[in-house]
């Protein structure tokens, strides 16, 4: 890991992403970014504001509303010497890009016997509770995580977002980079200057001894709040953020579960057949003889995300529901 040298500052997630792209685009002329409303509009979330002023519309490219098309273009450009980033406005729309990502980008290196490579990044979003209803609220990062050949990044704070995005851009493989749209304005410490964060290294955000909370992306803050609530009732929770779905830092998860003997996995994707199932299996495999309770999974409820706020709020794990689950696991009910 290259370490930051600058002085600490507080900036938003959006600024951190913007900085990562700016720094990388200055460093490497082969990088361009393409997507819908990303140039003058700077994306509907205003994450890329100003980028076009420095790099022009040749490198910050507004596209038609053609997700499969821009993804395919990026795959081809990446195979032939460019290092592109494609912006898919909402994570729900990755469904449109599936063939390009799954059958093209992911397999090219392998199918060519290692001759071709696809150094591209797809930036997209995940996360509910924005009252955006069923087609704009899903967390579909498990879909790409399923596919050999793809790497999947799920940062949880501005510092990680910046460092991981730079690593993603420098990686020689197709990388899907999922950002929680509820966190775009969240602030965090991001030192000035150059740093990167390697893939496959989990972050232990809080050490504990009674239960391990493995949380991803949007759910990391939920786990941290639950850990504080647990502390008040005398339970010590360890909070771990894997940061990348693949490569996955299995060792850190297993080691923590062996130490605490209990684990809860919290992720905003649908619970069934999802990230929580995979991570729970990793822990069950590696820490079986050390566990005092079955590994608990907490994902989004297995329903299309409802619009009505009273219903939507029921579909995602909250600090309260994590607290209850942890108490049950620790025999505190």
């Amino acid at each position: 890991m290259s370490t930051p040298n600058g002085t600490p500052r507080e900036i938003s997630w959006a600024q951190a992403i913007n900085e990562a792209l700016t720094e990388e685009m200055r460093r490497d002329e082969r990088i361009f970014i393409i997507g819908e409303d990303i140039a003058e509009a700077g994306t509907p979330f205003k994450v890329l504001s100003g980028l076009v002023d420095e790099f022009g519309t040749e490198r910050v490219i507004d596209s038609p509303i053609s997700e499969p098309g821009i993804t395919g273009i990026v795959v081809g450009a990446a195979m032939t010497g460019m290092r592109p980033v494609v912006d898919i406005m909402f994570g729900d729309f990755i469904t449109l890009t599936m063939d390009q990502m799954v059958n093209q980008a992911a397999k090219t290196h392998y199918m060519s016997g290692g001759k071709l490579k696809v150094p591209m990044v797809m930036r997209t979003t995940l996360g509910a509770t924005r009252r955006s209803a069923a087609q704009h609220s899903q967390s579909l990062h498990a879909w790409f995580s399923h596919v050999p050949g793809l790497k999947v990044v799920v940062p949880s704070n501005p510092y990680d977002a910046k460092g991981l995005l730079k690593t993603a851009i420098r990686d020689d493989n197709p990388v899907a980079f999922f950002e929680d749209k509820m966190l775009f304005q969240a602030k965090g410490n991001v030192p000035e200057g150059e740093y990167t964060i390697p893939f496959g290294v989990a972050n232990i955000l809080r050490e504990g001894s009674d239960v391990t909370l493995v949380a991803t992306s949007s759910m990391v803050q939920v786990a941290e709040q639950a850990a504080m609530m647990l502390e008040e009732i005398g339970l010590s929770a360890e909070v771990i953020d894997p940061r990348t779905m693949f490569p996955l830092d299995k060792a850190t998860l297993i080691e923590s579960a062996r130490k605490t003997s209990r684990a809860i996995i919290i992720d905003e994707g649908y619970e069934r057949y999802g990230v929580t199932a995979e991570l729970a299996a990793v822990i069950a495999d590696g820490a079986f003889y050390y566990l005092d309770a079955p590994v608990k999974r907490m994902g989004a409820m297995d329903v299309p995300i409802p619009f009505s706020p009273v219903l939507e709020d029921l579909t995602v794990p909250t600090p309260q529901t994590v607290l209850e689950a942890a108490k049950t696991l620790c025999g505190r009910v």
Binding site: R131, A133, H136, F307, L311
Partner: peptide, 18 residues
């Protein structure tokens, strides 16, 4: 429906866009 109420066309589950 726009307000997410049960009386809405989609029982509040669809919202403005659905």
């Amino acid at each position: 429906e726009l307000l997410g109420k049960e009386a809405g066309y989609c029982r509040g589950k669809g919202g403005s866009m659905h």
